[in-house]
Nucleic acid binder design. Structure first.
Length: 272
DNA sequence: TGCCAGGCTTCAC
DNA sequence: GTGAAGCATGGC
């Protein structure tokens, strides 16, 4: 499947900090795992496109939605205030980033792990957990593992979890798995809630605060008004928006603007 | 080597 | 409701 490069940039998405299991292979291709499926992506400069290594049906059934291909990001980019140079620069810099429609459970655990960790360290931890208790993906030469189910993580002992470099977050991960397995929290059902109620439900989970809830909403529930504020976004807000970010101008897409700013400021400070 | 990382809970006040 | 302490460990 050839996907034109217009409005999608796999390299930027892979390092945008919204997903942790999309990695660059030694041959320059990209690989990602989602819901137990592996997708390899080649860059085809000769066609000005990406080549998704999958059949058309799988693309239509799975990846088209995952990459949010039915949203026109050009329209969203045009919403930026013409006088907001910072945002316009951020968008220009991050053009091609899209908000992936990832799995809510995976986002819950991934962003619990993310607190006070660097992105490379988050990736390392998540990979360890997948190898420790995730299901091996069939039909691939490499050893690839799906993200563990709630039951698989719930079955781990505290000691096993600690081998994944999660540190003090181990108890949060256990509690989250327990809450899901026991149906104390129903991740699919709460998708019926409006944004505010969805956030309230997520905040009930031990180890989930404002920022992590925002990330789960944005990347796991595709709630595009979620605006998670981490140390980087706070830095951008303090420096560029001393009177607060004008959310009212970006109703329905301020989370996307957040993602452009996050990507931009991390590169501005040379941390990537 | 020391500092920082897509923060959270707990506990004063 | 607000503010500060304490937290585990990898990566640069």
């Amino acid at each position: 499947m050839l996907i034109p490069k217009r409005n999608i940039n796999i390299e930027k998405i892979a390092e945008s900090g919204q997903c942790f299991r999309m990695t660059k292979n030694s041959d320059g291709s990209y690989g990602l795992i989602h819901n137990g499926r592996y997708l390899r992506i080649l860059t085809r400069d000769d066609k000005d496109a990406y080549e998704f290594i999958c059949d058309k049906k799988t693309y239509e059934d799975v990846w088209r939605r995952y990459f949010d291909m039915d949203t026109d990001y050009g329209i969203i980019e045009d919403m930026a205030d013409p006088e907001d140079d910072y945002l316009r620069n951020a968008i220009e810099y991050g053009r091609g980033i899209r908000i992936l429609r990832q799995d809510a459970w995976e986002m819950l655990i991934s962003f619990i792990i993310s607190q006070r960790k660097s992105i490379p360290a988050i990736r390392t931890s998540i990979e360890k957990i997948c190898r420790l208790c995730g299901t091996r993906i069939e039909g691939e030469k490499e050893e690839l593992y799906a993200f563990p189910t709630p039951q698989q993580i719930d079955a781990l002992t505290e000691e096993e979890l600690l081998t994944c470099s999660v540190g003090y977050r181990g108890k949060y991960i256990k509690a989250a798995a327990q809450a899901v397995v026991s149906k104390e929290i129903e991740l699919e059902k709460i998708n019926e809630c409006d944004d505010m109620s969805l956030k309230d439900n997520l905040l009930r989970i031990y180890g989930v605060g404002e920022k992590v809830a925002g990330c789960i909403m944005l990347f796991g529930y595709h709630r595009l008004d979620a605006f998670p504020v981490d140390v980087w976004i706070k830095r951008a807000m303090d420096e560029q928006y001393p009177n607060g970010f004008p959310h009212h101008k970006y109703r329905g897409c301020s989370g996307i603007m957040q993602q452009y700013i996050f990507f931009y400021i991390r590169h501005t400070y040379g941390r990537v």
